[in-house]
């Protein structure tokens, strides 16, 4: 097993499948009255969050606690970081306290890589800048597999602000490893240069959402920040929604079995219409539940558990 999870590219097909299978076992626990395993008793997991993210932090906290680990939450606000402490000094402090794993969320791409060179414990990337969010990709893959029964050969459309999306990067890498066909859809201004060469040769790009929908098994809508408008990535929220938003007429173009995903938090009415978000095709709430199982599997395997 690998020591850190910094990028979805760290996972080969075998390891990724092991994590998803382990997550399935973890999910079975959620149905029991006692939702806890003693596996990580006496181990310390630090949640080191330099960005506000209630969803991801709580998910990791629940995952660690269900494995009986001691959890320390360390948020940048109101801590030594706001007094100007460097990431390296914070890392050395956590190291001295005996952290077995550090889960880090950071606004700078690559911060988890840097951290991993300064601590002995495992580092889990919980989202770094516009780089990656590998556990999100794992929970997304888990959700697709649970709903559709397979990943190999699935047509997955990832729609929206790919340029600034760590979710998209991790999903392209992991889904390609697991045999899915990924098409990135968005205005050309929000598709990064050389994306196929950068991530996976099989990745396709389309600027036309309507043409992609009839063949899609999965549509993953990305959050689009309205601030992007000020930078002229697109002219207006209205035009964006019209060209790339998933509304009811567009949803009807999807095959019967297709699902709609969103990593949250959503801009209802911008990239996704409320009727779509709340439809039976939507997996948005399942994704949250699956997040805990996927993160349990990651912590369990990184910290030396046997499947």
């Amino acid at each position: 097993m690998i020591r850190h999870l910094l990028s979805a590219a760290d996972l080969d097909a075998e390891t990724a499948t092991l994590i998803l299978d382990t997550a399935a076992e973890m999910a079975a626990l959620a149905g029991r009255e006692v939702k806890k395993l003693p596996t990580l008793r006496g181990r310390t997991v630090v949640n080191l969050f330099y960005e506000d993210s209630t969803r991801t932090r709580i998910s990791f906290e629940a995952a660690a606690k269900r494995l009986s680990a001691d959890v320390i939450n360390f948020s940048a606000k109101g801590s030594s970081v706001s007094k100007g402490e460097s990431l390296k000094d914070t890392a050395l402090t956590l190291q001295a306290m005996g952290a077995d794993a550090v889960v880090i969320r950071h606004p700078a791409s690559g911060a988890p890589h840097r951290l991993s060179s300064w601590v002995d414990g495992s580092v889990v990337n919980a989202g770094d800048g516009t780089h990656e969010h590998p556990t999100q990709a794992l929970l997304d893959a888990y959700t697709m597999r649970a709903r559709l029964g397979r990943l190999d050969g699935l047509n997955v459309a990832i729609v929206g602000d790919v340029l600034h999306s760590r979710v998209a990067r991790s999903n392209v890498l992991l889904l390609s490893t697991l045999g899915a066909n990924v098409t990135l859809v968005g205005p050309p201004t929000l598709i990064p240069v050389d994306i196929a060469a950068a991530l996976s040769k099989t990745t396709r790009v389309s600027y036309d959402l309507d043409s992609v929908l009839p063949d899609a098994d999965v549509v993953m809508m990305l959050r689009v920040q309205t601030e992007r408008m000020q930078d002229s990535y697109f002219p207006s929220a209205r035009e964006y929604a019209r060209r790339y938003g998933l509304d009811v007429p567009r949803m009807r173009k999807l095959p019967e079995h297709a699902i709609v995903m969103h990593p949250g938090p959503m801009n209802r009415g911008m990239e996704i219409a409320p009727e779509v978000a709340d439809s039976p095709r939507s997996t948005i709430v399942e994704q949250v539940a699956n997040g805990v199982s996927a993160r349990m599997a990651v912590l369990y395997l990184l910290l030396g558990g046997k499947a």
């Binding site: 791409s109 690559g110 770094d128 516009t130 780089h131 760590r166 990067r169 990064p192 050389d194």
Partner: peptide, 15 residues
């Protein structure tokens, strides 16, 4: 942050 190209896209660093 770095040259805009394949590598900046992979690393999520502004080109």
């Amino acid at each position: 942050q770095m040259h805009e190209g394949e590598v900046s896209t992979r690393l999520g660093l502004t080109g």
